[in-house]
Amino acid sequence: MILYAPLVIVTIYSFNDSKSIITWQGFSLRWYFDMFTGPESAKFKVAASNSFIIAIVSATVATTIATLAATAIVRGGAARYRTASLGLLSLPLMVPEIVTAVATLIFFNTIGFSRGLTTIILAHIVFCIPFAYLPIAARMQGIEDTYEQAAMDLYATKRQTFTRILLPLMMPGIISGYLLAFIVSLDDFIITNFVKGAGVETLPTAIFGAVKMGIKPNIMAISTALLLVSVVFVTISYFVAKADNKNK
C-alpha cells in the first residue's frame, strides 16, 4: 500500500537517536521516553485530548447535520432546492482556509464571542459538513426506495421507516462521511490557529512549529504512537465485531 510508505519512514525515524531526521545515529527509544517525561509532555497530552474531543464532537455533529440534510435533499423532492443546497453545502470547500480563518475571526470578534474550544468546534463543524455530506448523499442516491415503500405499505410510520430502513442502509455512507470529517478536523491547522485563542492547543498547532523548524524525532514518536493506538483500536473493533457475529 502506497499510503503507508511515508509512514514507514516516520516510524523508522522515531527510533533515531539523533536530534534531526536527516542523519541516522543508531537505534534508540529515547523519543518515546521523551514523549511521557520530556519538558513538553504535558502540553502534548492536553493538545492530543483537545484534538480528539474537537474531532469527535465536530465529526458527530457534522455527520448528523449532513445526514438530515441528505435526507431532505435526496428524499425531499423539489429539484430546485437541490442545486442551491449543493452549492451552499460545498461552500466551505471552496473558500481557501486562510480566508475562512480571517473572516471567521472577524465575525466572532464582531459578535463578541470569546475564543476557546467552543469557537474551534463551531468552525470545525462547518468545514466538516461537506466532507460528511457528499459520501452520505452519494450513498443515499444509490438506495432504491422500494424498501421504504414496502415498509410504509406495511403501516410503518415515517420515523420508523427512517430509523429502521433508511438509516441502516445508509450506514456505509455515514461511516465514510464520519471518518472523513474526523480526519479533516484532526488535521486542520490554519483555521484552528486563528480561532483558538491563547492557551488552547490542538495537536496540529502544538507540533506545527516543531515540524516547521526541522522535523524532530519526538514528533515522529508521537505520530507513531498515534498510529499504533489507532491500529490497536481497529484490531480490537474487528475482533469484537467478529465475536458479535459468532454469538448471533
Binding site: L3, L7, F208, V211, S223, L226, L227, S230
Partner: peptide, 11 residues
C-alpha cells in the same frame, strides 16, 4: 483512513 491520523504536514 489511519494514515491520515498523522498530521498532513508530517506526511
Amino acid at each position: 483512513t489511519i494514515p491520515y491520523w498523522v498530521n498532513l504536514l508530517i506526511r
